[in-house]
Design a protein around this nucleic acid. Structure first.
Length: 476
RNA sequence: GGCGUCGUACCCAAACGGCUAAGGGGAAGGUCUGCAAAACCUUUAUUUACCGGUUCGAGUCCGGUCGACGCCUCCA
């Protein structure tokens, strides 16, 4: 089966074909070129933002899992009205201001176990490419000037509105436009370059000093990194219009070739059934949730677990349930550390593994149906648990299952692997106490045994007695 | 006002017209165990907001009603 993805441009699920030319084997495809709209670094990113960014991460991890090579860029929007206003408020340079929030953003992503992407361009470092676009658009007559600002004339670009679900007439008659606010010929036109109003955040161009409009930044960074047509462009649904529509217009008008083959948009996250807002008190950034004691793993699991094209309702209850689901997985990995006595390798296990891989890839190949993929994973855990209960696994089998977990975690990124402990007690000390408790148990001195168990529990270590001995795990 | 999405059990969430509507959480009973925990087994939607229609067959398609949400404006 091939990977199929919904394309906003065509409004349907399509096979994903990097380079636009179908190959027999995935390895034969050129590296997948992806551009993901990144954050505007004027404040802390909230969990709604992270749903989108974690989807990008899931998508890239799955592409790699399936054998595609990647060339993935996510930009940092470090110049726009909000970053300028923020820097001005704090009376610091734009660079210092955006640098701080950029740093926090990447720390957050790391905590959520998102992989680094290949390119992280910044708008302020891509002005030369913007000038190239402006020059070409100017030569081709798509630009007009008003009071030192450059605007893109939509009338001149006939394909405008081709991104799915766009009705040109609807845009024009939108009720909430305040046309008086603009100096544009047509309300749908957009600013490519804004006239200088602050010498500290201005660049020279053949068309005068100023700063970029928002939309041109992405077009410029894409051109700079990838040169021509890219395979995939991702972002939140709110960017479809006008941001992505405008990117298509200016890029295709300037260069003539197709801008993006496959558009992928992630639905919004709601919190407690409503849009996040500070007044409602349902506005969360990552630090808020960590303070409440939730783990980044739970947050990652929850934000990833629902289908990306569906609005998702975020609740603290949901986070707790995600934590419980992870605990089930953790118990499984802890169990795989036990001693396995079966002398023979289990044939059924091999079947389980095959079935799991097939179900998993079939599911996720289908427009990243990760919910079903996770379902397949729990089916696998269940099946293996049953085999363990029946004393069917050899030590080699158990190691094989561990390999499967490591392999699949290249996609999930939320499985915890024991051995990477950070307890205050070291492992030898724990083993010693476990042995001490076991000899107490043999002497039927249960009071002493329970005392040891309780004291370990206080250190965050849970003991479990099994047929093959006592195992310990870290408390969540 | 225009365009669009969605409404599946106590909660979260799959199911691309066709065997008994995945999976996770929670709950209940059982097995194992000194106890506990974990795991395993069993149970928890004759039914998919509601009303009609198309079809041999619909959660899935069509029409209507109610409800939630999004875009049309800076926004992941």
């Amino acid at each position: 089966m091939a990977l199929r993805l919904y394309n906003t441009l065509t409004c349907r699920v399509e096979e994903f074909i990097p380079g636009g030319e179908k190959k027999d084997k995935i390895e034969d495809y050129p590296p997948v070129t992806i551009y993901s709209c990144g954050p505007t670094v004027y404040s802390y990113a909230h969990i709604g933002n992270f749903r989108t960014f974690l989807f990008n991460d899931l998508l890239r991890r799955y592409l790699k899992f399936r054998g595609f090579r990647l060339n993935h860029a996510m930009n940092i929007t470090d110049i726009d009205d909000k970053t300028i206003a923020g820097a001005r408020n704090e009376k610091i340079s734009l660079r210092n201001f955006t640098g701080r929030f950029t740093g926090i953003f990447f720390e957050n992503l790391k905590m959520l176990n998102a992989e680094d992407v290949e390119h992280v361009p910044r708008a302020t470092e891509s002005v030369d490419s913007m000038i190239d676009i402006l020059t070409r658009l100017h030569e081709k007559g798509f630009i007009y000037t008003k009071e030192g600002s450059l605007y893109f004339s939509i009338e001149k670009f006939h394909a405008y509105g081709k991104l799915c679900r766009l009705d040109r007439s609807g845009i024009k008659t939108g009720l909430r436009y305040d046309t008086d606010e603009y100096e544009k010929d047509d309300v749908r036109d957009f600013a490519l370059w804004k006239a200088e109003d602050d010498p500290d955040v201005s660049w020279d161009t053949p068309f005068g000093r100023g700063r970029p409009g928002w939309h041109i930044e992405c077009s410029a960074m894409i051109r700079k990194i990838f040169r021509g047509t890219i395979d995939m462009h991702t972002g939140g649904v709110d960017l479809i219009f006008p941001h992505h529509e405008n990117e298509i217009a200016q890029s295709e008008a300037a260069y003539g070739d197709k801008f993006v083959r496959h558009w992928v948009h992630v639905e919004h996250l709601l919190v407690d059934g409503a849009k996040m807002s500070k007044s409602k008190g349902n506005f969360y950034v990552l630090a808020d949730l960590l303070e409440k004691g939730y783990s980044p793993r739970s947050i990652r699991y929850l934000l990833i677990s629902a289908h990306y094209k569906k609005q998702m309702n975020f609740t603290l209850t949901g986070l707790e349930q995600a934590g419980q689901a992870l605990a089930r997985i953790d118990n499984f990995t802890a169990r795989l550390k036990d001693r396995f006595s079966s002398p023979e390798d289990c044939k059924e296990l091999r079947e389980c593994i095959e079935v799991f891989y097939k179900n998993f890839t079939d599911s996720v190949d289908d427009d990243i149906n990760i919910s079903m993929g996770i379902g397949a994973f729990f089916d696998f855990i269940h099946a293996v648990n049953s085999l363990i209960d029946g004393d069917r696994l050899s030590a080699k089998d158990a190691a094989g299952v561990m390999d499967v977990l490591r392999d699949i975690d290249r996609v999930f990124g939320f499985i915890f692997f024991p051995g990477e402990t950070k307890s205050s007690l070291d492992e030898k000390e724990i083993e010693r106490l476990v042995n001490e408790r076991n000899s107490a148990k043999e002497k039927k001195n249960f009071t002493e045994a329970d005392t040891i168990r309780d004291s370990l529990l206080k250190e965050g270590i849970i003991l479990e007695d099994t047929k093959s001995g006592t195992r310990w795990k870290l408390k969540k």
